[in-house]
């Protein structure tokens, strides 16, 4: 790993922390990470700490407001399923959907459109929870994107339209699994990165 004793920490990681960090101590965490980076910690360490800080902050907020978190995940998942259904039943014929490949420009375009839509919906969701704006916008966008992605992957893998109940149940189930995993206690010792 590259050691950096005087330069600026990775800008993208710093932006990620500022944009998605949900901890009330986000500014102090960013300052600590910058101080450690300038004291000789590696770029990999900085990135890893940034990601852990985002996940820990998010799970902390979600654990504190379980009902709001469940509602955000529920709404995100349901909207993703509705969006996916609409896309496959009305906007794009099933024959085209099943002929898509993961690397095709059409699939990439659909993903970009879906992500953009989810971010806008996320902003709307966040305005409903003004006290916990950032945490719930992030939670909502993740649940929307992951459910949508699971629906599409299932469609592409099984070459069947994602309109069956099993697809929806699978999407929801996997979504709740990661949330449960994220909420199942925080551990101080979560990093194994080289210093």
């Amino acid at each position: 790993m590259n050691k950096n004793t005087s330069g600026e920490p990775p800008r993208i990681a710093t932006w990620f922390l500022a944009a998605f960090g949900c901890s009330p101590d986000n500014d102090a965490i960013a300052g600590d990470l910058t101080e450690c980076y300038r004291a000789g910690r590696s770029r990999g360490w900085y990135w890893w700490q940034t990601l852990v800080a985002i996940v820990v902050g998010l799970s902390q907020e979600a654990r504190r407001n379980k009902l709001l978190a469940a509602r955000c995940i529920g709404v995100g998942s349901v909207l993703a399923i509705v969006f996916s259904e609409l896309l496959q039943r009305v906007l794009i014929p099933h024959s085209i959907i099943t002929s898509l490949r993961f690397v095709s420009p059409m699939f990439s375009m659909l993903l970009i459109v879906a992500c953009a839509a989810s971010i806008h919906l996320g902003k709307a969701m966040a305005s409903l929870h003004s006290n916990y704006r950032r945490a719930f916008a992030v939670l909502y966008v993740i649940s929307f994107c992951s459910t949508l992605y699971i629906c599409w992957i299932t469609t592409l893998l099984t070459a069947a339209p994602a309109r069956t109940t099993s697809h929806v149940i699978l999407g929801g189930f996997i979504n709740y699994l990661w949330v449960l995993r994220a909420l199942s206690g925080s551990n101080l010792f979560t990093t194994r990165m080289a210093r």
């Binding site: 901890s23 852990v52 800080a53 820990v56 902390q60 101080l188 010792f189 979560t190 990093t191 194994r192």
Partner: peptide, 13 residues
Amino acid sequence: RSVAVGSVYAALE
């Protein structure tokens, strides 16, 4: 052992 700064702040909070 390695410790995540974010986890320390969560505990402090």
